[in-house]
């Protein structure tokens, strides 16, 4: 190719760059699973009188600050803070380390939990009051009502939003490059520093992101269609 995109120089680096996809997907997958668990917990808490305040506060903080800040606090500040609290105040000598990978999973799980709880909450609210009343009128217990009617309908209704959250996680996970985790973005920076090429590795990484998200979007739509009741 031309001077614009030097394929020959970048091609040996493509396998190295692609390997970053592993971290990218692993972070998105683990964080969304933990995020759903946290989200369901927050939703249940929000239905409780006292606990709803904690849930509201949590969601407010995590949605009200940038994830880059949250990641920095968890990776750089928390270990130092704990170290100060534990060692200085209790006169102990314990070393606290948090790997970049753990910090990334913790941050993205906590963050997506806040968003997912909102998704689940609106999913539950989307179940018609009439269907719940019909179940009540038949003498169906609360447990069965949730298990067989409310949650399945809520899940179906919130599936597009949950898929969207997963795709957002795939893209947003690129910021873990600032704490040195070798995801797609970080590998691009490494290749650039070794080869002084900017455009080529960026484009390669861009194409990988785009293709992965395209596949996820198409799969999501297919699943969504299969979930329709007709």
């Amino acid at each position: 190719m031309s001077d614009l995109f030097n394929y020959d120089s970048i091609s040996p680096w493509i396998p190295y760059l692609s390997k970053g996809l592993g971290y990218t997907l692993l972070i998105a997958l683990l964080s969304s699973i933990l995020g759903v668990a946290i989200g369901v917990m927050l939703t249940l808490m929000s239905r409780h009188k006292q606990l709803s305040k904690i849930s509201y506060f949590y969601i407010d903080i995590f949605r009200g600050t940038p994830i880059l800040l949250q990641l920095s606090i968890i990776y750089f500040a928390i270990p130092k803070l704990v170290d100060t609290l534990v060692n200085d105040m209790m006169h102990l000598d314990i070393t606290i380390t948090l790997s970049a990978f753990s910090a990334a999973i913790i941050t993205f799980s906590l963050n997506s939990g806040a968003y997912i709880s909102e998704i689940i909450r609106s999913g539950i609210n989307s179940v018609s009051k009439g269907e719940i009343e019909a179940a009540e009128a038949l003498g169906v217990s609360k447990y069965h009502m949730y298990k067989d009617i409310i949650l399945p309908i809520a899940f179906k209704n919130s599936f597009p939003a949950l898929m969207n959250e997963f795709i957002t996680l795939v893209k947003e996970s690129s910021i873990v490059s600032i704490i040195g985790l070798q995801d797609l973005m970080r590998r691009q920076q490494i290749v650039t520093s070794q080869t002084y090429m900017y455009f080529e590795p960026l484009i390669v990484v861009g194409i990988i992101y785009y293709l992965v998200i395209k596949v996820l979007t198409i799969t999501g739509r297919k699943v969504e269609k299969r979930l329709q009741y007709d």
Binding site: S128, G130, E131, E133, A134, I149, P152, I153, K156, Y229
Partner: peptide
């Protein structure tokens, strides 16, 4: 029996 039927949509 309700005005809006209220069948379980799932």
């Amino acid at each position: 029996v309700f005005q809006s039927f209220n069948l379980f949509s799932n």
